[in-house]
């Protein structure tokens, strides 16, 4: 119950931070940061990872690691393309 309450407050906060102007790129960082806190609350308490086996916790954490590798390696290509190379 308390977790659900915290999630609702954070949802409101997600919307509220768009009312105050936060300069680039911190607005994205704040938005994704709040989303990450909410996702952690869901994973830890609703999905009960807080009391789950080490293996299950590891699987979940590793998925974010592989996602990060996926993002970083792709960006290494797309962020450094020459102007002559087509972007879509």
């Amino acid at each position: 119950m308390a977790v659900a309450g915290a999630l609702l407050v954070l949802t409101f906060l997600t919307v509220a931070v768009t009312w105050i102007q936060i300069p680039e790129p911190f607005n994205v960082i704040v938005a994704v940061g709040i989303a990450a806190i909410k996702a952690s609350l869901v994973a830890l308490f609703f999905m009960n990872l807080v009391r789950d086996s080490l293996l299950n916790r590891l699987a979940f954490v590793l998925s974010f690691l592989f996602l990060a590798i996926f993002v970083v390696i792709t960006l290494l290509d797309t962020l450094f393309r020459d102007s002559g190379f087509p972007v879509f």
Partner: peptide, 10 residues
């Protein structure tokens, strides 16, 4: 739910 939590602000 978690995926939507990220989709919404993004």
């Amino acid at each position: 739910d978690i995926i939507w939590i990220f989709l919404f602000p993004l």
